[in-house]
Amino acid sequence: MPNSIQMTDDLFDQLRLELRRGCLVMAVLGQLRAEHYGYTLRLALTDLGLAIDEGTLYPLLRRLESQGLLVSEWREEAKRDKRFYRISAEGKRMLGLLCVEWENINKSLNKILQKG
């Protein structure tokens, strides 16, 4: 029995991870409408209920920047160099499209789940 509980937990973690993966991009783009550096962005997302670990956030930020959805600059703050990120014009356009898509998925899912 404990084995089956463990398996269920592992499966849930795996599925939850898959579900969150796409949402994190939207959350990061949305949060970076205001400028943040990595650490404060992570804290802000955690405060809003979407905890994200460093190993996921920093590679994601680099990817989004290489895709032209974010811009960044190194700046000194509190006597230390920090890399500040904010959403680009292309990022804003993409966030808008993703929000529409998200709404559609959400509506469809609600209909499907209510039917059950």
Binding site: G38, Y58, W74, D81, R83
Partner: peptide, 13 residues
Amino acid sequence: DIIAELSEEIRSQ
């Protein structure tokens, strides 16, 4: 670049 950002994250923590 990556090391500088990662170090900054650790130091902030």
